[in-house]
Design a protein around this nucleic acid. Structure first.
Length: 491
RNA sequence: GCCCCCAUCGUCUAGUGGUUAGGACGACGGCCCUUCAAGCCGUUAACAGGGAUUCGAAUUCCCUUGGGGGUACCA
């Protein structure tokens, strides 16, 4: 109980981490940091067939993006390495042999085909599927004979035939399994690689992991792990099975639920700090009201006691809202820096690069309150960078002013007034345009709406005068010219 | 089928025997207003069902139902 806290995130490199995986990483990291412990990254690459190229990179990138730094692991090493299971094969093999010698495990020569037909048979007879333990009591001669035939066996664990396995889960309390319902699972595959169960237990022990915080889907294999620890004479770590993150249909999160890959959220313009905050609240809460919490708040307050038991649906709406509040809270310069990559991505090639930081800085106060993601930031501000906005002429005669002549007159009057404006700022523009609206007898809403289209090409944009001020006199005039032409040529 | 876990507004959740069951997202309405947002105010909406214990249950126990996970030489 007084052992130093050492926890690990142990993904297998079989794909890009999705928000569920990474939430597990986050909880481990928070727990480690809160307790001044160590956070270890261990790569469980024991399934050669499922290995995906680039998966390791994406794991590293994901952790880095969220700022989940690890103390030991790939790239940085550590006193308990190597941190790739594929580089620890000898350890698992010798452990398996020890287990066999001790009578806790045995060689199994059954072919995949036999296992398969056995399962089909069991399914037909409505019996619980499971290995029938044919090889459990093979004699020495039989074993050598089968080996001589060239069959490479797997190693299976000998589940006690009777009794029960009990363990205490920090989140769920005591959990009891009847040993009779457990299968003689495989420890070592015929390709010489260990299964998750073996490798995981061996490494957690060797790496002195104190707490295993993992997703709930592992709960039902925990008795196997407990039995393994016992067989090996190891002290088991403490377990905490975290509630699972579900898709909108309440099933385990997977690709078919759309955007689930963490880095996809980055691409969509979500901030990592919002992501961390949001993910932390998926299964954990501080109290009855706190929503927005900094990384430090989270580290300071995180505790397993306040982790819930129920699976949580990933609520994109709420994440988006939270992201908006984080964007609004960003310092101006910071938001500029963060928005630039998205503008680079969104803006057409004609817009000359590098983009002007000065201009973006002027745009920030105008769009900050109107966007929830950085992508929306880019989408909303593209017209600031274009010469003349593109839009359909019909927009000019949209909802307010239906009459072509009236619209034309209004734009011309605005053009004339602006041309003579000495000072081109929001206040002067308002001083000019508001009275003008009355002079020409058009409601301000309609008049400003018309100008908004002319200047931005959109019906929805930041406040008109400020927008125009940022755009500058020349450009505004050009836009108005263009609108006038459009109206004239309109039949 | 079998094993395990879970069960409060649509969603994320607070709540550990006595609360008008609280907050947040969303939705809806209002204020503000040149559009859209933001902000502020308000409305909507939940203890799955049934027993038991108790003076008193969202809170404890049991059953039912529902949901999820597992049941691989995947993790």
């Amino acid at each position: 109980m007084n052992k130093p806290v050492r926890v690990r995130y142990a993904p297998s490199p079989t794909g890009f981490p999705h928000v569920g995986n990474i939430r597990t990483a986050l909880f481990n990291w928070l727990f480690a940091r809160h307790n001044n412990g160590k956070f270890i990254l261990r790569i469980e690459d024991t399934d050669v067939s499922r290995k995906v190229e680039g998966a390791l990179d994406s794991i590293l990138t994901s952790l880095k993006w969220l700022g989940l730094d690890f103390d030991e692991g790939p790239g940085i090493g550590g006193p308990y390495g190597p941190y790739f299971q594929s580089q620890r094969l000898d350890i698992y093999r010798s452990t398996a042999e020890k287990l066999i010698a001790g009578g806790y495990a045995y060689y199994c020569f059954c072919s995949p085909e036999r296992l398969d037909s056995m399962r089909q048979e069991q399914a037909k007879l409505k019996q619980p599927p499971g290995y029938d333990r044919r090889c459990r009591n093979l004699g020495k001669e039989e074993i050598s004979k089968l080996k001589a035939e060239g069959i490479t066996p797997v190693v299976r664990f000998k589940i006690p035939l009777e009794g029960q396995t009990v363990f205490n889960d920090i989140i769920r309390g005591d959990v009891v399994f009847e040993n009779s319902t457990q299968d003689d699972f495989v420890l070592l595959k015929s390709d010489g690689f260990p299964t998750y169960h073996l490798a995981n237990i061996v490494d957690d022990h060797l790496m002195e992991v104190s707490h295993v915080l993992r997703a709930d889907e592992w709960l039902s294999s925990t008795p196997r792990h407990v039995l393994l620890y016992q067989a090996m004479g190891y002290e088991a770590p403490l377990f905490a099975h975290l509630p699972i993150i579900l898709g909108p249909d309440r099933s385990k999160l997977s690709k078919r639920h759309g955007t689930t890959s963490l880095m996809e959220f980055k691409k969509q313009g979500y901030l990592s700090e919002a992501m961390v905050n949001f993910l932390a609240l998926l299964g954990w809460s501080l109290d009855e009201k706190t929503e927005i919490m900094s990384r430090k708040d989270l580290v300071d307050n995180f505790s397993l006691e306040r982790v819930g038991k129920t699976g949580a649906i990933f609520n994109l709406e709420k994440l988006t809202w939270m992201n908006g509040t984080y964007i609004r809270a960003l310092r101006e310069n910071e938001l500029v820096s963060r928005a630039i990559p998205f503008l680079e991505e969104t803006l057409p090639a004609e817009v000359k690069r590098p983009l002007s930081r000065e201009l973006i800085k002027l745009i920030v106060p105008l769009v900050r309150e109107r966007v929830r993601t950085l992508k929306e930031f880019a989408d909303m501000s593209d017209f600031f960078f274009m010469e003349i906005p593109e839009y359909s002429t019909s927009l000019l005669l949209g909802k307010g002013i239906k009459n072509k002549e009236t619209a034309l007159m209004a734009v011309q009057r605005a053009h004339g007034g602006i041309e003579q404006l000495a000072k081109f700022d929001a206040t002067s523009l308002e001083g000019l345009l508001r009275p003008l609206s009355e002079q020409i007898g058009i409601k301000t809403g309609d008049f400003f709406g018309l100008l908004r289209i002319a200047v931005t090409g959109r019906m929805v944009a930041p406040p008109l005068f400020q927008t125009m001020a940022v755009m500058g006199k020349d450009k505004c005039l050009k836009c108005l010219d263009s609108a006038i032409k459009k109206l004239i040529t309109l039949k």
